[in-house]
Amino acid sequence: MATIIEITENKALEVKNFEFSYAGTDAPSIRTLNMPIAKNSITALIGPSGCGKTTLLRSFNRMHDLYPGNRYSGEILFHDRNILSPKEDLIHLRIQIGMIFQKPTAFPMSIFDNVAYGMRLQGVKNKTELADRVEKALKDAAIFKEVKDRLKHDANGLSGGQQQRLCIARAIAVEPEVLLFDEPTSALDPISTAGIEELIVELKDRVSIVIVTHNMQQAARVSDYTGFMYMGELIELGITEELFVTPRERLTEEYITGKFG
């Protein structure tokens, strides 16, 4: 059975008996998964390719609902409500739980409009308020200095690392409570990666973070808690240092010592 530590601090999210199957497949990609996610901390998800990390992450903001035919059951609690409920307001949920993707996803518009996008969706029209919040988000994402002279330029002119930080700025501009990162640095060079990692650590004062990564050093560097997944199950969730130094499950140990995966 899985070894999952108790989390004494507040929880941002709590997964209970979650099961998930993709449309057109019989075998569930996630089976009876239980997992607490601590508030204002960073939880890393690791595990071999295809084990269900992305699938779990995308369940937190109901991304799977964009594609018909996916089936899921169980509960994911967020502020004591089950966000898997069919009554859940997805627009509101996705504003509260933001997401950063594997590749930078700059929209086909200017840098400023990219960051302002989420706020505009919420009806913020006031020019100065928008400008202030855009600037703040860009500063928080540590990219303001690089782009302040070209806010009106097309965002696709930025480098990959800059675009990824722009996406982070765009996500934090709407002041979410939780941020989900799916391998946010896998398409970036080492220097940009270090920058993003630093940024993620800084963000945890304000948001709770779940990050999927293939890079165990990255998990060790940035996260407070680490969950190891294998074949759709959460095998072990522990404090990062403990999990990497003294894993309690044999599978975890084999994985982090490179015996498979």
Partner: peptide, 20 residues
Amino acid sequence: ILKESAYALGGTKWDVIKDI
């Protein structure tokens, strides 16, 4: 992934179509 990014910011289908 581009469309999903806009949905992830709370966009509706129409928002995603017209803006992205």
